[in-house]
Design a binder for these strands. Sequence first.
DNA 1: GGAGCCATGTAACATGTTACATGATTAT
DNA 2: ATAATCATGTAACATGTTACATGGCTCC
Lengths: 179, 179
Amino acid sequence: MRTLKYALLGLINRQSMSGYDITREFNNNKLANFWHAKHSQVYPELNRLTEEGLITCELVNLTDKFEKKMYTITDAGKKEFAAWLSEDEPLAPTPKDVFRLRMYFCENMTPQELSQHLDNAVLQHEKSLAKLMHIMSDTYGNVPPEICTQAYGDYMVLEGAILREKSYLEWLHKCLDRM
Amino acid sequence: MRTLKYALLGLINRQSMSGYDITREFNNNKLANFWHAKHSQVYPELNRLTEEGLITCELVNLTDKFEKKMYTITDAGKKEFAAWLSEDEPLAPTPKDVFRLRMYFCENMTPQELSQHLDNAVLQHEKSLAKLMHIMSDTYGNVPPEICTQAYGDYMVLEGAILREKSYLEWLHKCLDRM
DNA sequence: GGAGCCATGTAACATGTTACATGATTAT
DNA sequence: ATAATCATGTAACATGTTACATGGCTCC
């Protein structure tokens, strides 16, 4: 389905970006809550999109010797991206989760081991939730931006990530309550 | 990390199984709520585990001409599986989600298009939730089995899947309420 | 001068999907 | 007979990770 392709087109559609900028978005920013890619995957894909005429590349001189490659979306790129956005795709298969896999095999654990795993997961997800909620209140003060804006996209997925973490914690606590 | 390896070892540890049986677990049964694999991935991995001495293979004749391969875990396999089970792994990166990616780019949608996407997702997740809750009440009558049993592992991940779907729906409804 | 970040790329490997291939059994 | 399911495999391809490789800039 080449989802990475559309992630890149969507980002470059927001504004011209370099491969490094895109990688940073994937690893540090809001996108990390539902998509990610390493630079080793991003750079080849940018070259491919350029060959396909969906983006163009411009060399920008930062200093005499030091350049960066800024990518801009083309009309063809905008068209393909818009077509993908409007697609009505089927429900994705449930995401893989190694922790759930371990829990599934709890018949091989003592109650002590089981609750230790659960406790550890609680700590990890509480930390992750706290971080997300901090970003939320810092950025939006919990007030949603106007719908169908760039900020609203950011807000929606952040809200979704918070609910996801809360739900994971709810599950872990239900399991712990039965111990 | 070779997670598939441990998924297979865990299943074969429960009882001797064929590659076909395992594939069926992955695609039809409770495992589908957090792990899955196609037969084209399962069969080579079974051969690899056999070579590594973690499982053994026995040909069982169903009829004169028709055989199936039943795999059984070895002591070495049990040991490796137990070691993996007790590992305390770091928080996994958030799972990729194409729907959230689309929502992230909502600045390119009209409110009509956005709410249409949300409505469609609601239908899909409601269907999925209904199915899970049906399995839950049918199998357990909502009464959790004794902890650290095979049935309890099944129950835990099913409960987790239900909470996950409920949380996804809560997010979608929050988004729709703002439209 | 060294640490950390900016910036771009490739190679080898691991994982996962789709398609190709075959053949028996069971229920209608 | 024919469709669905049981049963096992391989080949080609797509996706994603880790490691290798290079070099400049900025702050301390």
